[in-house]
Write a protein that binds this DNA or RNA. Structure first.
Lengths: 208, 208
DNA sequence: TAATTGTACGAACGGTCGTACTATTACTCT
DNA sequence: AGAGTAATAGTACGACCGTTCGTACAATTA
């Protein structure tokens, strides 16, 4: 029971407020650095009241990942999908991703980069969900590239191209946060353009 | 006072044993997940005795980074530097890095990837040291590429090429750990080869 | 031999962690 | 209006955190 007549009931409002704060904290301090007591204090609610919404720390972490996924979809995927399938959409996806990272939709940079590294070497439900999200994302790039290939705008191995593009995104994200300097995004944008040009079918108009 | 007649004294042996374990733990659970109590228990020594060697948690973290840097230098940089400067060395550096990650010199994959993400959005002495190590590493790649350019084996912007190669390394490292599957290293090796071929001066023999 | 230093120890400190229970408040529905 | 339920708060817990302390023993130096 989350909605009544389309209106949010009290509990769900709290839940949303908690998760909105959770994703920001986790993008900076990780999903372990995200502590229930701290979260409650910052939101001005009781620790036990907050805890009751999730039942366990792990469930809070999983819910936080789901919330971050929605924000990610809204800020990266949806805008890119307003562009027609093909090379234009591949470029839009790259542009949206780098803008998403650079504009600090999450204060600590890409949420998923952060927490994926945090849980990468463990074996938990959180790790599994993060691996699934990573898979989902790589599949999405590959599919988008596949559409461009079907339309005769790109050639080559979509998996390889997806790997390369994603690598540029991630590298720019880390370097920019670590050095608090976003000149690296230009390297990434240049890398994307050059890599796409190497795979583009002659005669195809370039979207940048 | 660390050595007597070239022999290690007791305290330094302990210190080394601690750090050898620290880098492994940190590569899996991060530098915050590295707790003094746990470390002491695993090594069978007292918490307070261990603590006395470092004086603070932060100093333990900094020492751990220095220890990891030595291991990194031994396993990645030194082997590559046995190859003559030029394209061959650039390739050797890439190969060594991917082997270093794939062979799990650190059980959690690349130590620096892990902890750099962990501390990237913070502002501490640890963050500064990690940023410095990252800089040092990027400079090393650029210099190595610069040598190949001076010898007329490569063309283009060394900074851009360094960014691209490092991006392939990092992306392969994360994907392989997250999915517990090392097929992604072949994507990385292929990406490195293709990228180098795009910058190689015609007539230069390829080292792979 | 005496004094000093290096190394490691156990115990305890105040804090924070996640979690479990019980009470209290606020809202819905008949 | 009163019962019933959902949401929040209060309190307490055991475990672990980094850190400090006083102490014991061994090795080095005087």
């Amino acid at each position: 029971m989350e909605k009544v007549d389309g209106r949010l009931v009290r509990g769900d409002q709290t839940r949303r407020a908690v998760l909105r704060r959770s994703v920001d904290i986790a993008s900076v301090d990780g999903l372990e650095g995200l502590s229930i007591g701290r979260l409650a204090t910052e939101l001005g609610i009781s620790k036990s009241g907050l805890f009751a919404h999730f039942g366990s720390k792990e469930e809070l972490q999983l819910s936080t990942i789901r919330a971050a996924r929605r924000i990610y979809a809204d800020n990266v995927v949806l805008p890119a999908f307003e562009v027609e399938p093909g090379l234009g959409r591949v470029w839009a996806l790259s542009k949206q991703w780098l803008d998403y990272s650079q504009s600090r939709v999450f204060p600590g940079g890409c949420f998923f980069q952060k927490v994926s590294h945090e849980f990468s070497a463990r074996d938990s439900a959180v790790t599994e969900m993060l691996a699934a999200v990573h898979d989902e994302w790589m599949d999405l790039i590959e599919t988008t590239i596949g559409e461009a290939i079907s339309r005769g705008e790109l050639t080559g191995d979509p998996k390889q191209l997806a790997f390369d593009l994603n690598a540029y995104y991630e590298a720019a994200n880390l370097a920019s946060i670590l050095h608090n300097d976003d000149t690296t995004y230009e390297h990434a944008r240049q890398a994307v353009r050059t890599r796409l040009e190497s795979a583009v079918v002659p005669g195809t108009p370039l979207p940048w």
